[in-house]
């Protein structure tokens, strides 16, 4: 029952996304703008792989921050919160939104990563396995933290500016880990060397989702 309603919430979000293409259009433009600024500022300078790994995650963090709050803010703006509260239980709403954000983040970050590898010539991935696993696990962690924070800021007045402010201290352990793992990937480290990073990423995602499930009732209900 809960799985079914969660899936329905997810399907509703996918439908409204494909109808307006709000998130997709804005986010793809955001990524292109951010990438061009990076490319212009690099010019013909030689930049170390460590710095380039950091810049990749700066783009990913801020593109997530500009798109992922939509999931709850749009419900608040369209006044559909009450309807959802009446129709389904909170855990189903949370699961549906998490799934939507997860798929959005993974596909967006894969797009960013591909563009970054293609466009930034000095960024050479020597261990593709580490790199792509980092992108996937990092996206999952970002989606997990972003979903509960989006539910929180949807009730606040200054939504747009508050979101990265709240998210940064929460996501910093994740960001430091993925940046380190990406640096390992550019150095051509063997897969086993990044195992510790992957453990941290999985643990982080699981802990954040578990806490979110507990807290969501209090955040969602008025």
């Amino acid at each position: 029952m809960m799985m079914r309603s969660a899936y329905e919430v997810f399907r509703k979000d996918v439908h409204s996304e494909f109808r307006t293409r709000y998130a997709m259009n804005a986010l793809i433009m955001f990524v292109i703008v951010a990438l061009s600024i990076i490319l212009f500022s690099i010019g013909d300078e030689s930049v170390t792989p460590g710095v380039l790994s950091g810049i990749l995650w700066v783009i990913i963090f801020f593109s997530g921050m500009s798109g992922l709050s939509r999931s709850f803010v749009s419900e608040e703006e369209r006044g559909t919160v009450l309807t959802l509260q009446l129709l389904t239980e909170p855990s189903a709403v949370y699961a549906g939104k998490l799934l939507f954000n997860l798929i959005l983040t993974v596909s967006l970050n894969l797009f960013i990563a591909v563009m970054y590898v293609l466009l930034v010539q000095q960024f050479v991935v020597q261990s593709p396995a580490i790199f792509w696993v980092t992108i996937l696990l990092g996206s999952a962690g970002i989606a997990a933290a972003a979903t509960i924070l989006a539910a929180i800021i949807a009730k606040a007045n200054t939504k747009g500016t508050l979101y990265p402010v709240l998210a940064f201290p929460i996501m910093l352990p994740l960001l430091l880990t993925v940046m380190n793992a990406t640096r390992l990937a550019t150095e051509g480290a063997p897969f086993s060397e990044a195992a510790g990073e992957f453990q941290v990423l999985v643990a982080y995602t699981v802990v954040v989702i578990a806490v979110s499930v507990i807290l969501f009732d209090f955040v969602w209900k008025d």
Partner: peptide
């Protein structure tokens, strides 16, 4: 309610620094 929720989320993610920092 929201600030309590935020402090709890911060409280459970902050300990990750203990594992992340030394690496």
């Amino acid at each position: 309610a929201l600030s309590a929720a935020y402090s709890i989320i911060a409280g459970v993610t902050a300990p990750f620094f203990i594992f992340v920092m030394p690496r």
